[in-house]
Write a protein that binds this DNA or RNA. Structure first.
Lengths: 310, 310
DNA sequence: CGTGGCGATATCTTTGAGGTATCGCCAACG
DNA sequence: CGTTGGCGATACCTCAAAGATATCGCCACG
């Protein structure tokens, strides 16, 4: 049985007249008669009663037509749905990201993406760089934002683009002597109780701090350890010490604290966006477009790797 | 788009391999490649990724396949449903009947029909003979059980078959003097307070009673009037008089009453089953088969008018 | 550097969808 | 009571396209 048979049966039921139904279908009457006859033979039951008053579905015909109309609706919807999926208007995007990405690029990116693609299901998974790398290679994520490029087996199949530079800054209570300074020096920091974070991704931050404060790790050894940047800021606000963290901390609005640059300027690993090189999903493309629009500094780098979606 | 395209796309998705999918479909590989290419052109989106590892649906392909599978299910169900409807296994039967038919033929007929055709929706409408006639002609009923043949315009398009003879019997309290008699005479009845019914269909009953009791209607004029046979029996049980009604009353199990024949035997109009002459609905046929099986006396009459369904 | 597996392409064959002409049937009408 | 006209079915033809066969191009793999 072909969709044609369904279309013809539905048209015949609607017009109750072979000639008019055929005209509406853009064919002549004899082919319609034949197709309906073939259909009735295949189904094994008479579907229409031909009377002088018109053509009416039998009980079997009524039952058939219910299904036929539904099938035709599904077929029409198939093309529509496929088109929407192909344009990236529907679908799913699984995003892995480090917690600190929630401070700066993600709020703008996610709200914009959600506005542009309301029917795309966003799956957000906060995870460390190492896990993002594994999940991307395993196909469990579509895109990831990590601290530094993904590492490990299979990363050669990934495209990675830096989307944000970062460096160490300090955060202090507004009443703290350093609060008025434009920047604080490493020497000044060495004389203060310090607050640093201890997330899974923090080895790189700790390494940066070692570079800043010198190999004498005794200062760091005595530091207060916080689980995330919000805790660092909270502790700094309460005055127990000087917080050290990524410059992205500035994005957290918090009265009672002040942020200071640190000299010498101490770079942290770039925030990196990665995805499978062979993934040409239109939803991913749309997401990359939003990244490009929201992170103007890295637009060029992205353009080098992939073409624009639009 | 044709159903073929859906079948091919689904098979390709299941096998992930053009050659094997084609084999499963009973065609060669090149035609499958062409049909899929045609489909992708018509949909306006690539539906499958051809990789060295196999053929996999794209996001658009996944969206398409969901709809395609549903459409194919509907198409398969269309044939099944039409077949079931054609065999009278599903559908609807609108039955009009006079109340007294509920006493005798209907309980057996309905329970048997309900057992044989559990998926047929039975619509039962108690109505007078005149209304059944109109509804049958108007196509608002499929079949009717009436007292006497339907009357009025359009009855020539109906087939009517008597399915049960009937005559007047009496019902009395077990303590009543007549309770021991095999039959009561018209004379005896004339000396008793009588209980008769007054339904819409009762003119014919009243006419029969006039025949029985003589044109002296004063006896009937003083009778107690009940709305239905159950009330007649109830009143007779309470001893207020002698009930007169159709012999079908015997079907009502009721302690405390006894039924007696009446002499002379006074016929009532036959119970008649009618349906539209041009109605060949399999559900109706099945119903007629049940009537034939449950009313052995009238089997021959029915057979004269319509062929057996089986 | 073959070699084999896979999908795409080219070309031919054949099925069957659709067109035209006509028939048979019945209701309505002169 | 024959005629006519409308409708669906039938007969026959045409041609588009589904499918078969042969072959190509490509890449992974030995």
């Amino acid at each position: 049985m072909e969709a044609r048979h369904l279309r013809y049966a539905v048209a015949l039921a609607e017009h109750g007249h072979f000639g008019r139904a055929a005209g509406e279908l853009g064919i002549a009457q004899p082919p319609l008669s034949k197709q309906i006859a073939d259909l009735e033979r295949e189904v094994g039951a008479r579907l229409f009663d031909r009377t002088r008053q018109g053509v009416f579905p039998t009980a079997a015909g009524e039952a058939f037509l219910v299904r036929a109309r539904r099938a035709l609706e599904e077929i029409a919807a198939a093309t529509v749905d496929a088109g929407r999926a192909a344009r990236g208007e529907t679908g799913r995007l699984r995003l892995g990201f480090i917690a600190s990405a929630l401070l700066d690029p993600l709020p703008g990116v996610l709200s914009r993406f959600g506005r542009e693609r309301p029917d795309v299901r966003l799956e957000l998974h906060e995870m460390a760089t190492s896990r993002s790398s594994l999940a991307l290679v395993a196909g469990e994520l579509d895109v990831a934002i990590t601290l530094g490029s993904p590492r490990g087996a299979g990363v050669e199949h990934l495209v990675s683009v830096p989307i944000g530079r970062d460096h160490v800054i300090a955060v202090v209570n507004t009443a703290h002597p350093y609060a008025g300074q434009l920047s604080v020096s490493a020497d000044q920091l060495r004389r203060q109780p310090l607050i640093v974070s201890a997330g899974e991704d923090e080895p790189s931050v700790v390494a940066a701090l070692r570079t800043l404060l010198g190999t004498d790790s005794s200062v760091l050894g005595g530091a207060i350890v916080a689980r995330d940047v919000h805790t660092i800021i909270g502790l700094a606000a309460s005055g127990v010490g000087v917080g050290l963290g990524p410059s992205r901390m500035r994005a957290v609005p918090r009265p009672g604290v002040r942020f200071c640059e640190v000299t010498p300027r101490t770079p942290l690993p770039d925030l990196v966006l990665s995805f499978a090189a062979r993934d040409h999903s239109p939803v991913l493309r749309a997401f990359l477009d939003v990244i490009r629009a929201n992170c103007p500094d890295v637009g060029a780098a992205l353009n080098d790797r992939i073409g624009s979606h639009t």
